[in-house]
Design a protein around this nucleic acid. Structure first.
Lengths: 221, 221
DNA sequence: GCAGTTAACTTGGTATACCATCATACGGAA
DNA sequence: TTCCGTATGATGGTATACCAAGTTAACTGC
């Protein structure tokens, strides 16, 4: 006999650990530019601002360090990492390889469900910049996961933290939302047509454009 | 007139932080198989074994977590991550992309100094497995750095932590040291000839062979 | 034999204290 | 006045003790 599934009545106490929340807060603040490049991250001050203890702050900083958002100088403590065009170029190059490969792999195996999810993410991109960000993330996650490349997806997400700082400025300066949507629609179309080469080319075109914008912003300064 | 480079007289006080030492010890122990897959990493026990305090152990575990060597279950604590062929395959795929690109980039720009360093690393591979490991690392570091791909090098190093666990078994089982040396010599030759395509092909052949060995080990079980 | 309770252990988190180092500001001597 | 040394404070790094919540396992009573 099939039992009724046990109803999930749990209080849903945040299963997220305090340190994860701290990481997200800090990462968000850095990406949003509330901590400028080179700013010192004073532990005790962060404890007050986040309302957590030093252990949590320190572990969070270690994690952000591995993401390249923070770097610790000996005897000086952590500071917000600087981002120059040399680094951004490398990151775009790596994303070009990884996302291109994932899009090709996804196009090779995409079935109806994958295509529907991509279309849904694309449709969800109407709205505020928060919705755009979430939908974009979802879009790429579907591509990577369906291509069976979870580890590459993790790497790309970590890399994105570093260059997401550019997005804040990009969005503030130019309204790139519409062309971005267009580019992603082209990627989705190539995947819908199960055309790996076209998918890779679309991804690379998208990234080349983004890299160009980043370059103008970072080199112009 | 060329000035003498300023002599480095610094006392060289261990600039390494305790936490870095702990990370290296733990990583080494996991790679060497002293902590089997799935084993729980009890914080207080590690404090005793490493002779450091909980703060250090916890931060070290966070770092190993981002390397994929450890994963933390809520309310259970950290355990040694399991490595299956699905993950290893993904890692080899990513290395194929990144190392292939780096070798091609290196071959495109390599000058005499780079070629000499590669030859030196190759020569240093005579010796115990420690020397082989160090020389191999140095070999790839030269390739990535000379290609201007420091960030990709960091990523590859992090990924390598995960599959280095295989190397311990590989070396124990088969003596792949000699063919490995041969493969790397072919990479160095392609770079010495400034032939990017050949360099990429040599790297990919090397990795395909390594992936094949890993597959037989992980799928056979 | 089995169910329910309890006890021990572990974790995540916090607070606190201590030390070494670095930067700065102050004060005295040439 | 200027320079040097020192006192002081801020900061990071480390260690230790403690608590609440959860898991695990044993134990006990039926």
């Amino acid at each position: 006999m099939e039992q009724m599934p046990p109803p999930d009545l749990r209080i849903h106490r945040p299963p997220q650990m305090l340190r994860e929340l701290a990481v997200e807060r800090l990462r968000g603040a850095i990406i949003a530019g509330r901590f400028p490049s080179g700013a010192r991250l004073v532990e005790r001050a962060l404890c007050d601002q986040l309302g957590v203890s030093r252990s949590v702050v320190r572990e969070a900083i270690r994690i952000l360090e591995t993401e390249g958002l923070v770097e610790s100088l000996p005897n000086r403590g952590p500071v917000v990492a600087r981002l120059d065009w040399g680094q951004a170029r490398q990151i775009y190059d790596i994303r070009r390889l990884l996302e291109g490969s994932a899009a090709a792999g996804c196009a090779a195996v995409a079935d109806g469900a994958v295509k529907a999810e991509l279309a849904a993410a694309l449709a969800a991109m109407r709205g505020g910049s928060d919705a755009v960000f979430a939908a974009t993330t979802r879009f790429y996650e579907v591509i990577f996961r369906s291509a069976g490349q979870d580890i590459a997806w993790e790497i790309v997400q970590r890399l994105n933290g570093r260059i997401s700082r550019l997005r804040a400025l990009t969005l503030a300066a130019t309204d790139r939302a519409v062309p971005g949507h267009e580019r992603m629609a082209r990627i989705a179309a190539a995947i819908a047509a199960n055309d790996p080469d076209a998918a890779r080319a679309a991804v690379e075109a998208h990234l080349d454009e983004a890299a160009g914008i980043a370059r103008r912003m970072l080199e112009g300064v």
